[in-house]
């Protein structure tokens, strides 16, 4: 499989804190790549640096032949990259449908009703509540909303930051199942940040393990899941 997203020697930090220190890996086209690691490993910083919310001090990011570093975060949707931030990022003051419409505004082409219908088709719960303020949605519904909103931009690549956070196992399973389906049907490339390593590896093809801002393992998902030592040291299961 060809590489969709290539990260090379990426470094970033907060003042004296080094959050990323020479991270390199690739995410293959049409596959799920899991980024794993304990609290504070640098996973969120990695995604934020890729999507331009955080400044890279060193290194480069390449999306399908285009350099992404130095590109402003606002331009990412037009380049085919969607980032679902940690803590979900539902704009609770807007309605469900407004959140979705917003998702389509950043992309290049014209928006039409079919995008909305497609997302409502994928997530029927959202269709039922399209006029409600997003404030009233449950955690699982909010997760569906942000994934749906990201899809509105018709991205080639999706960055997801801990979608399982705070959700019941049943909902997590449901969302991961949906993701797996999307990856297959739309040949979406997904970079999935998770602390819930077991679930993430179950749908990922590859996994990258971060520790203190460095890559400590980068292998097929099955191999990672089978490596007892690694699992105990970094993945906690």
């Amino acid at each position: 499989m060809p590489a969709m997203l290539t990260v090379t020697d990426l470094a970033a930090g907060y003042g004296p804190v080094r959050a990323l220190d020479g991270v390199s890996f690739t995410a293959e086209r049409g596959r799920v790549t899991a980024v794993l690691g304990a609290n504070g490993a640098g996973k969120t910083t990695l995604l934020r640096t890729i999507s331009g919310l955080h400044r890279a001090e060193r290194g480069s990011v390449d999306l399908d032949g285009q350099r992404l570093d130095r590109v402003a975060a606002e331009r990412m949707p037009a380049l085919g990259l969607a980032h679902v931030p940690e803590g979900r990022g539902v704009i609770t003051e807007l309605t469900v449908e407004e959140n979705l419409r917003l998702g389509a505004l950043g992309r290049a082409g014209k928006v039409d009703g079919s995008d909305l219908e497609r997302v409502y088709g994928l997530f029927p719960v959202l269709a039922d509540r399209r006029a409600a303020t997003a404030h009233v949605l449950s955690g699982g519904e909010r997760q569906m909303l942000v994934v749906g909103r990201a899809l509105m931009a018709r991205p080639t690549t999706l960055l997801l930051d801990e979608p399982s956070l705070g959700l019941a196992p049943r909902i997590v399973a449901q969302i991961f199942e949906l993701l797996r389906g999307l990856v297959e049907s739309e040949s979406l490339t997904v970079l999935l940040v998770e602390q819930n390593a077991r679930s993430a590896l179950s749908i990922a093809h590859r996994g990258v393990v971060l520790n203190l801002g460095r890559v400590v393992a980068d292998d097929d998902a099955d191999a990672l899941a089978a490596d007892d030592q690694l699992r105990h040291a970094y993945l906690g299961f």
Partner: peptide
């Protein structure tokens, strides 16, 4: 209007708005 939606999104959550391509 779309511009109004963008303005509201920027006001409520500038970071998410940026990620969605809004020039906050």
């Amino acid at each position: 209007t779309d511009i109004g939606l963008r303005m509201r999104a920027s006001a409520f959550n500038p970071e998410v708005a940026r990620l969605l391509g809004v020039r906050v």
